[in-house]
Design a protein around this nucleic acid. Sequence first.
DNA 1: TGCTTATATCGTAACGATTACTAATTATTC
DNA 2: GAATAATTAGTAATCGTTACGATATAAGCA
Lengths: 157, 157
Amino acid sequence: MNRVANISQQFAAHNYKLTPQREAIVRVLLDNEKDHLSVEEVYMLVKRSYPHLGLATVYRTLELLCELHIVQKMNFGDGVARYDLRDDDHVHMHHHLICNVCGKLEEIKDDWLVELEARVAREYGFSVTDHRLDFKGTYNSCQKNGCKGDKDCRAVS
Amino acid sequence: MNRVANISQQFAAHNYKLTPQREAIVRVLLDNEKDHLSVEEVYMLVKRSYPHLGLATVYRTLELLCELHIVQKMNFGDGVARYDLRDDDHVHMHHHLICNVCGKLEEIKDDWLVELEARVAREYGFSVTDHRLDFKGTYNSCQKNGCKGDKDCRAVS
DNA sequence: TGCTTATATCGTAACGATTACTAATTATTC
DNA sequence: GAATAATTAGTAATCGTTACGATATAAGCA
């Protein structure tokens, strides 16, 4: 099934409409699924197909998508919120590798935490609905090509 | 060894001085190790022992402590940066449980990710220097006492 | 169709956390 | 003890985000 149509249905199911502006934003997210776009980036990209769109609408729409669990708002410590499409089941979050040298942000699409979540439930009486796992470090390939000193104090691990 | 003295040495080792202001801030962090204080909270607490201290100094000192890997700047999606003392070896980060109902933030002091980090190294050629693992969900005890609908779209998983 | 009401958008002002900057203060060096 | 460097205080500026009033679009109904 068409993903836009799918999302449109989810909007309808919650009495929201997929307006042209909202659809343009959703399409940008789908077309850039690999990236973790900031509001400003989404704004720039949407302007290509919808030049008249206002920044506040981007903020509002992303918040709405977040409420519908279609996207996930995240914070990688660079001072701006970033948004990530969730999996279709809206449950599992993927993990991230963040390279200190080249700055690349890679996704691990698997869910490696099933076991640990069971352990949390067992040992802490805590049932997990969502999680976040980021690894920071360096790719071996980056390591070779000289590594500038890491004075980096950005938030988020 | 006294922890303040220990930190003082680390300052000295990097040609920084542990001024009275900085020491007052460090003591607040040590005295509230369980919490994840925001800048504003640290500011309030330090004012008790050092009423004249300026807010900018808190910002600068926390950044410095971060650079020295004594604290870790984190972001739990409530709009302010929070700071967490690192373990003495300055390597392992603990994990977090965040309850959707009562809002409590609990720490898991173990490092459960040793295995997964090995896997990342193996499968992705990526050597981890740091990580972050947060679980969001509900305590069983909170679950019972009625759970308000979760419309929460805060950043960070 | 025309009127009414609700929903969504636009542009911008307001807000709040953080950073940048200047002057004043304290420590260090010669 | 004067000159230099490091640190702090206080506040102005910045920047991401949110709030607000006015306008526009869609839905419901006679």
